[in-house]
Amino acid sequence: MSAQLFWALAGAVLAAASVVVSSGSSRLRGALGLAGTFAGLACLFALLGAPLLGAFWLVAAAGNGLALFLLEASGPPERGPAEAGRQPLLKLAGAALAIGLVAGGIAIVYRPGSFTDALPGSIGPGSLGASLYSQHALAVYTAAALLLAAVVATLALGKRRAD
């Protein structure tokens, strides 16, 4: 399959899945749509010569998507007690989805014989890491501080009791 055809396919999947997420029809469809959106985005990143970024996006999205999935599954049922019985199944599906996204990320990085290696703007994981820790070291430290602040804020918000 040529790169252009693969690009069009990934773009179509991305657009369709994002419409499903935005329409918010049901919890399960929303979570599956989110997974499809991230998978499409990761394919587009890989095609544009950024496989590591696609893998990172998939891994980060797996964590966030799983959190949203579990959050929705642990809430009140949408359509009465019939759906309440399906909630353990929903949690299992969320976990399987997250594992699948992480596996997809690993596959993108280690895919042998990539046809995007010769793209002008593409850089491999080693070059990207070297660039990050030499030219953009200050930005990396700032991002690390931001993540630490977010973790502390999340813990503080989680410990607050209901009014």
């Binding site: 980060a60 070059s127 918000l157």
Partner: peptide, 25 residues
């Protein structure tokens, strides 16, 4: 034809994760 876009996108991803951590909480 340079890698600066990927570096910026990677740092933007960190902001996404921080944003969604706090949002989920």
């Amino acid at each position: 034809a340079d890698g600066a876009g990927q570096v910026f996108a990677l740092l933007a991803l960190v902001v996404v994760v921080a944003n969604l951590c706090v949002g989920t909480a």
